[in-house]
Computed example of a mutant assay.
Amino acid sequence: MGAKAGKRVTAADVARSLGLSRATVGFVLNGTTGQRISEATRDRVLAEAARLGYRPHTAAQTLRRGSSKLVLLVLPDWPVEFSIGKCVEEASHALEEAGYSLITQTRHPAGTARPLWELLDPEVVIGFGPFTPEELTAMRGCGITKVIPRPVKSPSPSDPLGLHDGPRLQVEHLRTLGHTRLGFAATADPRLAGLVESRLHVCRKTAESLELPPPVVRSVDDAPDAAGWAVRDWLGANVTGVVAYNDESAARVVRAAVRAGHEVPADLAVIGHDDNPYAALFVPSISSIRIDYAGLGRHLAALALHEATGRSLPADGAGAAAAVVARESTGSSPTGQ
C-alpha cells in the first residue's frame, strides 16, 4: 500500500504499511540509538521506506538535531567564469570535509523564485555581495541568524580578502615596465557593472598614487569592432599599456591590435586579470593576475564554519593572494619612458 500520487511519503505511511508503531519506524528512520529494535525489523522498515519513496523532511530533522548542516552561498548575477567556479568548488570540498553541504543560488534582478533560505533552512547564509535590508529581514523572519552579508567588499577602502590587489598589481606592473599612459579595457555587461567599477576604482587610485594620469577607459565588448575602435583611441591618445578588466577583455584587445597590424607588446602592452587557462594558450600569450581563488573558497568555508560551530578562523587570513604572471603581451614601453 503506497501513498497517494503527489503526496509526500511520511514515517506514518511507512508504519501504516508495515503495521508497526510510528515510534518504532521513527527510531529506525532517524537512526536513534539505544532502542531495542531487531535487525530484521530495521531491515523491513528501511526496505519499505525505499519502496514507498520516503525522503527525510529537512525542517523536521533540523528541529531534532539543531543543525541542517547546510550552507547557502548566494551569488550575484555574474557569468560563472573560471574564477568563480574554482572558488565555489574549493568551498564545497572544504565544507564537505567538515560534514556540511554547500548549496548555491544566483540572484536574478527580475527573478520570481523563492529564495532557498526559505525552503531549505540553511544553517549559514553567505553573500558574495551585500544583502539588501529586505533580504536580511526575510532571513531573520525564517529564523536564520548566521548571515555573512558581505565577504567581498566592492568598492571599499578596506579589502579584507585582498581582491583589490589585482588591479593595483596590473598598474604597477605596467608602470615598472616604463608605461606612463594607460588604458582600461572594460566590459559593458550590466551584470558586471559593480565589479568593473570596483577594479577601475582601484586602477585609478593606483595610477594617482604613482603620479600617472587617469586611465583612458574604453569598452571592448561584442559590438562590431568595439575593441578595434578602443585600440585606435588608445594609440591616438599615446596609450602604451592597457589594464584589462579580465582575460577575455585582454584577449579582445590583443586580437584587435594584431589584426590592425600593431605589435603586442611593442606598440601596445596588455595585462589581463584572473589568469584563466586560455591566457597562456593565446598568441601572444597574455600576462595576467593570478588570484588564489581556491584559497578564497577555503576562506569562505572557514567563515561559514566559524559562524556555524565557533571554529577559529585560520591565522593566514583569506588566502586570496594575488600575483603577476608575466607573459608575452607585456613589455617595455616603445618610448622608453
Rank of each mutant, 00 (worst) to 15 (best):
M1K: 10
M1I: 10
V9T: 10
V14S: 02
L18K: 11
L20S: 06
S21Y: 02
V25A: 07
F27Q: 09
N30T: 07
T32N: 04
G34D: 13
G34P: 06
E48S: 09
Y54S: 05
H57R: 12
T58A: 15
Q61D: 08
S68N: 13
L75D: 00
D77I: 01
P79G: 11
S83N: 07
I84H: 10
C87K: 07
E90G: 00
H93G: 00
R107N: 00
P109E: 12
P109S: 04
G111I: 11
L116V: 06
G127Q: 03
F128N: 11
F131E: 08
P133R: 14
L136D: 03
T137C: 06
M139N: 08
M139Y: 10
R140K: 15
R140C: 00
G141C: 05
G141E: 14
V147G: 04
P149C: 07
P151K: 00
S154F: 13
L163H: 14
H173K: 13
T176I: 07
G178V: 03
A185M: 11
T187R: 09
P190Y: 05
L195P: 01
C203P: 08
C203K: 01
L210R: 12
L210I: 03
P214N: 03
P214V: 10
V217N: 08
V220T: 14
V220Q: 10
D221G: 15
W229V: 14
W229K: 14
W229H: 15
G241P: 05
A244S: 14
A244R: 13
D247H: 11
E263H: 09
D267L: 08
A269L: 03
G272Y: 06
P277D: 08
A279F: 11
A279L: 10
R290K: 09
L296S: 01
R298G: 08
A302R: 08
E307G: 05
G310L: 02
A318T: 07
A318W: 00
A323C: 03
A326Y: 08
R327C: 13
R327A: 15
E328F: 06
